[in-house]
Design a protein around this nucleic acid. Sequence first.
DNA 1: GTGAAAGCGCTAACAT
DNA 2: ATGTTAGCGCTTTCAC
Lengths: 341, 341
Amino acid sequence: MPRTTIHDIAKALNTSAATVSRALNDHPSISEATKVMVRVTAKQLNYQQNRMASSLRSGKSMVIGVIIPSAEISFFGSVIHGIEEVAKARGYNVLLFQSNERYQQEVQGIQTLLQSNVDGIIASIAKETTHYSHFLEAKRRNTPLILFDRAIEDLGVSTVVIDDYKGAYMATEHLVEQGYRRIAHIAGPSHIKIFHERLRGYVDALSANKLVVDEDLIVYGKVSIDSGRERMNQLLQLDLMPDAVFAVEDFTALGALQAIKETEFHQPGQIGLVGFANEAFSAYITPSLTTVDQQTNIMGREAAQLLLNAITGNANTETLPQKIVLDPKLVVRDSSRPPDQ
Amino acid sequence: MPRTTIHDIAKALNTSAATVSRALNDHPSISEATKVMVRVTAKQLNYQQNRMASSLRSGKSMVIGVIIPSAEISFFGSVIHGIEEVAKARGYNVLLFQSNERYQQEVQGIQTLLQSNVDGIIASIAKETTHYSHFLEAKRRNTPLILFDRAIEDLGVSTVVIDDYKGAYMATEHLVEQGYRRIAHIAGPSHIKIFHERLRGYVDALSANKLVVDEDLIVYGKVSIDSGRERMNQLLQLDLMPDAVFAVEDFTALGALQAIKETEFHQPGQIGLVGFANEAFSAYITPSLTTVDQQTNIMGREAAQLLLNAITGNANTETLPQKIVLDPKLVVRDSSRPPDQ
DNA sequence: GTGAAAGCGCTAACAT
DNA sequence: ATGTTAGCGCTTTCAC
């Protein structure tokens, strides 16, 4: 059984497909009476628009593409949620593509989304990615692109990020205020900007508080639980051990916490700890983890908003790339309690 | 600048669009030589297929739609991941739709996906949903549908679930084996089948182990942290308190754990606890939570597999709805340690 | 092995 | 306010 088309409706009403199309799209030049008739008949015949046909003709697909490293990371799940809310409210659907942190898959993602004629793309860059020309392909095709969180600026595209520098600064200063003095940092790969920014925030917060920046207290990890554990163990071997640790993100902090728990030191009390991301688990572990909230939902909503503006916005007005920087929020919990006397 | 079409390629090679189309689709009746020429020229001209046009003509969109309650729940994020892996490997894309646990949004999701001509749909039912006719719309449109986890059987569609009964049975029996005797259950809404099955598993495991099923020890919650906490407090008020709790899922268990921690009882030792779902946080909290793993990634992969088979499978062969039941795995951690003497 | 022609379902000029 | 016509880019009979 073939599905109902606008021609079927037209036939039933002794009118033309064009009128039906206009009526359904609420075109101003169609009389109220006709619109009502069309809508009623459409419902009767159980008409469902064929979006492919509409898209092919109009050049707009009402779909936005989203590329994320993995839906399994709660951070991205939460951002997607935000994107989807805004998109849906404005009649757009979300086509999802995961890069699995792979450069090749990211490139393929852009291609596939462009082939699917998405009206715009929102992406966060894979860990593996170090060059970015594939994103320019979207520009060449005149498809608006927004990057979030793991963003790169020199592409000349709009971005939504949080102020990683500030978040790290706040986190570090918080440890200082709590009374810690030898504060270590488990950093992430410096080629990824957000991680580098966090390192900078850490360093500057120490300096601003007249604490020496000790190179031994900065170790580089791979942003994972295991890596956090390893790096923490390395820090615990030092002759002059740290009395607190600022970890580049929560999974790293979790690994560090596990490492500390395996020693005779207590956490908190002897070793203060702060993470970054406010991952779901951070509130539930013991001790609960002090961390920096990244405003994931807002990030998704803002990214979607920016994109939709770019899509619907006047193409004539040469809009410069915008940069939205969200304010991180320090979430103080137990892991950064002041040190014991 | 307009994008390259097959006509451009045809013109460049002094051939026809039909030949180009066939060559690009590796049609058997095209000579190798022509195929090579076409492919080379396509690359030169930076040709990208227009999938909308292709879909409109061929009736296949190479897109599968997925409806989940929320991408923010790690369970669903993980399932999506599995779906996407399989889909991508077979050339399909994933169009995502969140119902936010709302019936209305679920109905709209089905509609939108059908309008988008997706080749098939994978869905997990919203908490709010109590009637299911909207799913039949997919059938009427001949669009294959697979339900996972929160599934309903009488629709006559294929499903992928885990054996909730068995998982609950294992969880409960595990507590018995550890030496607990008064085992309570914080249940979920019974109209959702998976929760009802878990209740059944709990009851049967007790009976099979010659323990009385005490109605006072079965309380009904709303499947959330707060609800878990409330129900646990209720259980703690009982004259004959339970010595262990099997919670309907991990968030409920987490709430229960928090409630216990606020008392003088210790957990584990005095009160055993088991959850369900193996949510990410369950491994990280203290004590780590014994729980039942739901094989999320496999669930996603199996669902995608089933769907793709239904899509590509011979439509003549009247395939009966299949039901894949995955085996739950008990994950023993600290929260169910044997009781102190 | 390749080309000509038709048409998927819709929208948008251009008519009236 | 409505109808006519053309065509988005592709696939697919049907020819040869």
